[in-house]
């Protein structure tokens, strides 16, 4: 290993100056599980799913800059156990009913859970009361499925220039809110083609009238695990990362 390179699980990975570990890994085709990271947006570091060991210490790979000679552990039993626990917490903190969710098969949360061999929620379900906002004619906001990744918040602010979404409250009270006088999506300037609609990694923000159009067997994660096909969903989401 020489020059601008790091080691991920013993394999040398080159990087460009200024890249994070996640960006270097993506460029090299190395999968690090993640949910709040998106290559088109600045590092966020909130879901912690991409935690790796950097020279023996934990760090979020989407926020830690790559430095020459770094030794990174990624696909280890210890790290994946922790990631699985985080994923299980996301499931029980919301109301995720994969059997009838239209994002099933195209959902990053579900795909990450499969990748991490999550076979049960393990923790007791919170069953929190969460509101569904169906007031927009073309977009449904189902907060039951929100994992607070803030991708819609960032996309609306930075790409769409509309500032439609925000996170209110702290800790377990944190929730996705809508920036309008009524607090309802139908009273915002959101358009179905906005980046904020396309970027949701789960089934929290979905376009009306498109549900279940892709048959079982043809959905993104019916084809291969998320580690192989990335996170691109036709008309929704972003490219292989």
């Amino acid at each position: 290993m020489s020059g601008n390179a790091i080691s991920i699980d013993g394999v040398a990975v080159a990087f460009e100056p200024g890249q994070t570990i996640m960006q270097a890994a993506e460029a090299a085709g190395v999968y690090i599980p993640h949910l709040c990271h998106h290559p088109e947006f600045a590092p966020h570091g909130s879901c912690k799913l991409c935690t790796v060991k950097v020279n023996g210490r934990n760090g979020a790979s989407c926020t830690v800059g790559a430095q020459p000679g770094m030794v990174v552990e990624n696909n280890t039993a210890e790290l994946n156990d922790g990631r699985r626990a985080l994923t299980q917490m996301l499931f029980v903190e919301g109301n995720h009913f994969c059997p009838f969710c239209e994002r099933s098969g195209n959902c990053q949360l579900q795909a990450v859970a499969y990748f991490l061999n999550m076979t049960s929620p393990h923790f007791e379900h919170f069953y929190p009361p969460r509101e569904v906002d169906a007031s927009h004619p073309e977009v449904l906001l189902d907060r039951n499925r929100c994992i607070l990744c803030e991708l819609c918040v960032r996309a609306s602010r930075e790409v769409d220039g509309k500032n439609v979404f925000g996170i209110a409250g702290r800790g377990i009270q944190a929730r996705l809110v809508v920036n309008s006088h009524s607090g309802r999506l139908g009273d915002t300037g959101l358009a179905a083609t906005d980046k904020a609609v396309q970027v949701c990694p789960v089934g929290a923000i979905i376009r009306k009238g498109t549900a279940f159009r892709v048959p079982v067997g043809k959905r993104l994660y019916d084809q291969a695990p998320i580690s192989e096909v990335g996170t691109h969903v036709t008309g929704q989401g972003h490219g292989k990362t």
Partner: peptide, 14 residues
Amino acid sequence: QGRPYWEVPVLVQR
């Protein structure tokens, strides 16, 4: 009640 109609055929078959 409260769920979007397009979910119903997949939901109620359960």
